[in-house]
Design a binder for these strands. Structure first.
Lengths: 141, 141
DNA sequence: TTATTATAGTTCGATATCTAACTATTGTCA
DNA sequence: TGACAATAGTTAGATATCGAACTATAATAA
């Protein structure tokens, strides 16, 4: 049961998926955005208004990393900051209209990626894969 | 069939596995080594003598990245460079005795990681997971 | 034989990422 | 109320990573 290469495959899949995302974003005229930025935008498509801390947790990055990523997205005019009026320590992040306008593109790319990854999978196989990955994750996290 | 979270799980598993590796290396007295360095050493445990180009391909990193990683491992006295006598463009990388001495530790950690990831998996489940991951990889790479 | 092309590796500049240290604000409790 | 602890976010320094440009060497072709 030892020495299978599942983890190797997992690394390769993840990297190829990231390449796919970057490539498709560029093909849709979105330059300079990497998957981590996409993660932020996707959170905001579901959440509207989010503190730095919440955002960091949701994309599984540290606050320090998030500061850099957010600065980049602000420079790209896709999101903006807003100080909380209740608590002066807190900063909210929200989409700009430009950021919102890309929602459809992100959904499309996400959908295409899934279609590609599992294109020849039966319902059953997809479900099995997800179940086994969940089990794996529970073992290590 | 859409919108499953397999890719999300894959990212989480990979990151947790990397954390595990770094943590175990430290617990075994190997500091400052990250998984990419480990990949290089593991290649050399199987290969003895390897050019920069071959190494880069085997660990799926660019030559530019490999240059940095190799410099680090040389600083740690785990590997060394050697100019080819046939072709002056070529540099061989090989383990130092210190690097060789860690072979057992790397094997142990790799084994422990697999045992942890798939600890409650049946033979059958492990095989299924690997098969489905291979299929996924073939779809995207 | 010389000019062109190909190949191996490094350097440079940019960026994502982290930890640790820091600032500023808020909360707690004696 | 005032000191200390907790929390939110940023900054600094380090490192992995990449693409592009570069250097040096080897191979090929005219």
């Amino acid at each position: 049961m030892k020495n299978n290469n599942a983890l190797y495959l997992i690394s390769r899949i993840r990297e190829a998926a990231n390449r796919f995302i970057v490539q498709e974003l560029e093909a849709n005229g979105i330059k300079g955005v990497v998957p981590s930025h996409g993660d932020i935008l996707v959170v905001l498509y579901a959440c509207e208004k989010c503190t730095m801390k919440e955002l960091a947790q949701k994309i599984h990055r540290t606050k320090a990393t998030l500061t850099v990523l957010v600065d980049k997205l602000i420079a790209l005019k896709l999101i903006e900051k807003e100080k909380s009026s209740q608590d002066n320590r807190v900063t909210y992040i929200r989409l700009t209209p430009l950021g919102e306008s890309y929602k459809g593109v992100f959904e499309k790319i996400s959908c295409e990626l899934n279609n590609l990854l599992f294109k020849d999978f039966s319902e059953e196989e997809t479900k099995t894969l997800v179940t086994l990955l969940e089990k794996t994750r529970a073992n290590i996290e």
